[in-house]
Each structure stands twice: as structure tokens, then as C-alpha cells.
């Protein structure tokens, strides 16, 4: 009986170890950030400034941002099929501060719990994620910063 108990105890320790490791891996995937008053993430996620040109590529890429699936952008009228699920992004940089935009890309549910918009920089709290995407954010921290740099160009 005692032997069995010990084995179970060892098992628990091993399991705890595995869990700690898993949590560490997740942490390594997303940088820590601070949400200010539930409204904005003012500090950039990376040291390297965002690259608007690459941000546009990520914005358009259907396997990355795929932003046009839901948003209309008039300046991108050369691109087909803009969706109408989200608001148009024309002039978004006039309406939102860079920090407010960062929060909306990173995790828009902080601003609106019911939104259909995905969190582009989150790895936790998901249900039944496909294996290929498990534990990974939709965009890397640098890609988020690049998209934000591109969004900054959307002024009217």
C-alpha cells in the first residue's frame, strides 16, 4: 500500500513538473504587457520599432492577419473582397491612440467581451485549439508591432 502511495506521489511530482514546463513554454511564446485602465497597452511589445511595410503584408496575408476578411479599407481597394463584420478601418489612427490599437489587436476581448474579433497575441483560455496552432499566438510580437505601424498610416 505504502509503495503504491509513493508511486502516486512521484507521479504527481512528475506531472507538476511537466505542467510547470508547459506553462514556461507558453510564457516564452508571449511577452508580458500591461493593460492601462482596461483601455490600452501603451508600451510596445518589442524593442524593434514596427515596420509598416511588413505590417501591410501581415495585415493582408490570409494566414496571418487576414484583416480584410472582416474590415473594409478604402486605400486597399485594389484588393478583392473586403468583409463587413468589423468596422471600416479608414481613419482608425485618428480615432484610436497607438496604445488603444495595440490592445485591440493583442486581445480585443478586454475592450468588448462579446466581440467576434480574434485575439492576435494570446495563447491561453482557448477551447480545443487545432494541434498546429496550440500554444501559439496568431501573430508574433514583432508582427503585431509591424501591423500597428501600418495601422498608424490610416489617417484621413
Amino acid at each position: 500500500m505504502q509503495t503504491k502511495m509513493s508511486r502516486r506521489a512521484y507521479g504527481s511530482i512528475a506531472l507538476a513538473g511537466a505542467l510547470t514546463l508547459a506553462i514556461n513554454v507558453v510564457w516564452a511564446e508571449t511577452m508580458k504587457y500591461e493593460v492601462v485602465d482596461g483601455e490600452a497597452i501603451n508600451a510596445a511589445l518589442t524593442d524593434q520599432a514596427g515596420d509598416a511595410a511588413n505590417g501591410k503584408k501581415v495585415f493582408l496575408n490570409r494566414k496571418k492577419g487576414n484583416c480584410l476578411a472582416c474590415h473594409v479599407v478604402s486605400s486597399l481597394s485594389d484588393q478583392p473582397f473586403h468583409g463587413e463584420v468589423g468596422p471600416p478601418l479608414d481613419g482608425v489612427a485618428d480615432r484610436l491612440s497607438p496604445g488603444e490599437m495595440r490592445l485591440r489587436v493583442v486581445n480585443p476581448k478586454v475592450v468588448n467581451a462579446d466581440t467576434i474579433m480574434p485575439a492576435f497575441y494570446r495563447t491561453d483560455g482557448f477551447e480545443r485549439v487545432l494541434k498546429d496552432f496550440e500554444g501559439k499566438p496568431m501573430l508574433s510580437a514583432q508582427e503585431v508591432e509591424d501591423v500597428l505601424a501600418y495601422l498608424q498610416t490610416m489617417k484621413e
Binding site: 473582397f81 463584420v85 482557448f126 487545432l130 501559439k136
Partner: peptide, 27 residues
Amino acid sequence: QRRGQLDMACSHCHVDNAGNMIRANTL
């Protein structure tokens, strides 16, 4: 129930956005 990396429930598309275009398709 929200599910997947995109974190969407059936209702997000088929209740909240029925009739709206998502890319080239009408939900």
C-alpha cells in the same frame, strides 16, 4: 461556446453577423 485559436462561437457568425460579408461570402 467560443472555440479554436480564432476563439469564435457559432453564434458570432450565424446570429450576430448573418447577412454580413466575410471576405467573398455572405454569412
